[in-house]
Design a protein around this nucleic acid. Structure first.
Lengths: 229, 229
DNA sequence: ACACATTTGTGCAAAAAAGCACAAATCGTC
DNA sequence: GACGATTTGTGCTTTTTTGCACAAATGTGT
């Protein structure tokens, strides 16, 4: 009977991780990556919490859902914790992304370095605009930029099949977003990041996350207005 | 003693509106605007909820925090409700926005039509890059584009003072974000929209909202990974 | 070997958010 | 003018999230 189980097996937490926790893991991951780059070995929950803007108690509870990766009286090992989070979030595998809509925003997203940060790779660009189709667009930040051809919207399904894209980014005008979303889903995409200012209705089993610039400004304005009083 | 008070006074709800509600108001507002454009007069909570992806009960409770603007057995008047939300959120006044960082993302934001959607106007662009300073960048969507000069980061305080900007957008690399944020705050900005992938620490009384593309993708990846099992 | 200073992990309480169900109010019709 | 069909507004319950406080575990120094 083994009294000590290897950690790689022990930590098979299939715990239900709360949505609130999941939404904070990326921030922890990023902070830990920066600390690792800076050669820092260990960090306490208090410090990491300060770096990410949460309370230390919340941070500890979040991390405890992944497993018991800290050492009491000492703290967390930066590199080890970073790896555990990346594994939990599926960042040790490669995620291929298709961007639909190569307007100003779509191009900015394609360029965006942080986008391609470990694990995510833009593998296809699609647009409906005839003047854009066939043109080349630079993808990725400095270091390793790739030029990608803009494909026709009508080829969306084929492009997804060929590139094995699993994440879809909708950066089209609001009018076309729902149609594009429907086609992404039909082509097998089950995770969509939506930048178009509309609610996308999708069948169960498909996740949509929305990034809405105007909404964010409006929320800020709401609070700003109240401050003036 | 007046038995009926004018609605402009009656609805002086200084109720504490919950953060969750505030975050949904922009979606309601947008849907209502579209309905108004389509000349629709009335809408039920059920329909509006479907358009915005929330439950009808939640929608009604959200709206009830603003006042009693519906009619039982009938629904809500589109234009009236839209106006009430816009008033509550401070969208009937003009909000001037300064964008710091005119890289790919900053330019896309400046161009973004929805950004300038009712109430918000980009009034200044600032960057540290010498090769960008002095150049002109088109702002706003088709219809009424304005060319804005890119100002030097060293002039940030003056630019804010001259343009009376009240909202600040940080679209710089992560390294410079905190410094820029500090200067925005010192210049009087108390509402910041942060696109840089770092947590900004600001004094009490200052609001920061963060838009993080990589985080959103990571959250999607987390769920996508779980689906595969 | 033992006391002490840290720091994690977590049980429990409080607060916030979401969901349910139904009474109250309104409209159209007979 | 009363009745039935709708649809809002809301009290109450359930779930989720946050916050607190402290026991358990570790390292250090004597």
């Amino acid at each position: 009977m083994p009294s000590k189980v290897p950690s790689s097996i022990k930590d098979g937490h299939t715990h239900k991780i709360s949505e609130a926790t999941v939404s904070r893991l990326p921030a922890y991951y990023r902070a830990l990556s920066q600390l690792a780059d800076a050669q820092q070995i260990r960090i306490s929950s208090e410090e990491l919490a300060a770096l990410t803007g949460v309370s230390s108690a919340m941070l500890r509870k979040d991390l405890s859902h992944l497993g018991s990766y800290g050492t009491r009286g000492v703290g967390y090992e930066v590199e080890f914790l970073r790896y555990q989070i990346s594994r939990e979030m599926g960042l040790n595998q490669d995620w291929s992304v298709v961007i639909v809509g190569v307007g100003n925003l779509g191009r900015a997203l394609a360029h965006y370095g942080g986008f391609g940060s470990r694990g995510f790779r833009v593998v296809a660009l699609v647009d409906a605009d005839q003047t854009l189709i066939g043109t080349k667009v630079k993808c990725g930040a400095e270091g390793k930029t790739v030029e990608l051809l803009v494909h026709a919207l009508s080829d969306l399904e084929d492009v997804i099949k060929e590139t094995n894209a699993r994440l879809g980014v909708v950066a089209t005008p609001a009018e076309s977003a729902q149609v594009v979303s429907d086609r992404l889903v039909k082509a097998g995409i089950r995770s969509i990041l939506n930048f178009a200012p509309v609610h996308l209705s999708v069948p169960e089993g498909v996740d949509v996350r929305k990034v809405d610039l105007a909404s964010e400004l409006q929320i800020l304005a709401f609070h700003e207005q109240r401050k003036a009083i």
